[in-house]
Amino acid sequence: MSTATINPVLEPVKAPPGYVANRAILTGGSRQVTVLALIAVAIVLPFVLGEYRLFQATQVLIFAVAILGLNILTGYNGQISVGHSAFLAMGAYATAILGIEFGMPYWLAIPTSGLICLGFGFLFGFPALRLQGFYLALATFSLAVALPQLLRYKGIEQWTGGVQGLFVDKPAVPAGLPVTPDQWIYFVTLFVTIALFWAAWNLVRGPVGRAVIALRDHEVAAEVMGIRASIFKSLTFGVSAMYTGIAGSLSALSIQFVAPDSFHMFVSVTLLVGAVVGGVATIWGAFLGALFVVFIPNVAEQISSNATWAVYGAFLLLVIYLMPNGMAGGLEDLFRRLRARAPGR
């Protein structure tokens, strides 16, 4: 039997008025060039930035990874988490404890921390599947409020350092490399960020991403098409926790210190802000969101040191109002409008 002889029976559907077939602003070659150019800039950056700016650049990368993790879960899969600071904390503490107690080198501690968070995320995601919308949000919230206190708990103080927290060794620069330790941690972070963004990009544009979105859009139909919702959603939770956990691991290495107070529940909200402001269910929006959450508080403080958070809130409202699809969506619209106006089009 062959399906090659199939002839259409129905009259072809006409495209709706005003319909534009290809909306991607960057395709194929130009996308690769843009990505390579950005990576080139990122490689040069540590040699031109001062110490503090370099630290901030590292923080942007770390936040980008953490926000990407949340976006995989909340943006693509529609499971709302307001507790991702818990996974940030888990990754950070895992790295600190693995280094201090087991003498694990940082390059091994980063993926190991990620795997620990993957496991936790999966296990947490499994029962949480029964919870929808607000209830899932509350369950994740409870994780985020509980964890800092648990980390302070006296009974495990010998591991976690209690209220004092733990000091983490800065990754040593490999012998012979002409970079400072700050530049080195930046490069480690950059490498991990590129690898994780690449993997996420592969995931979302392939069969898994399609399935993750399908589960968000119509779970019953997705199951009828052969997707096992329980396993798939838990795995998505796990992968999301792994991304955010690796971000936590990198933050422990770059700040060289972990303490319960660094993972206040407010950090979860910051991640959510980054995901939404950057652009829900976009990959590079995570990066834009990271720029926002790292720099806007500083900008706000410069504008008014008394009303920093009011100014921050105003910025937030401005973005939401002007760019309903986040900064990624806003920039794409802008780009499209510019291109439409460009001569020769």
Binding site: G206, P207, V208, R210, A211, I213, A214, R216, D217, H218, V220, A221, A222, M225, G226, I227, A281
Partner: peptide, 22 residues
């Protein structure tokens, strides 16, 4: 019961999900 944010082609490809092992 379509996946409203996916394209027509993606919806159809998802229909074949049971045949893949990815």
């Amino acid at each position: 019961a379509l996946f409203k944010t996916l394209s027509v082609r993606e919806n159809i490809m998802l229909g074949g999900h049971s045949t893949i092992s990815t």
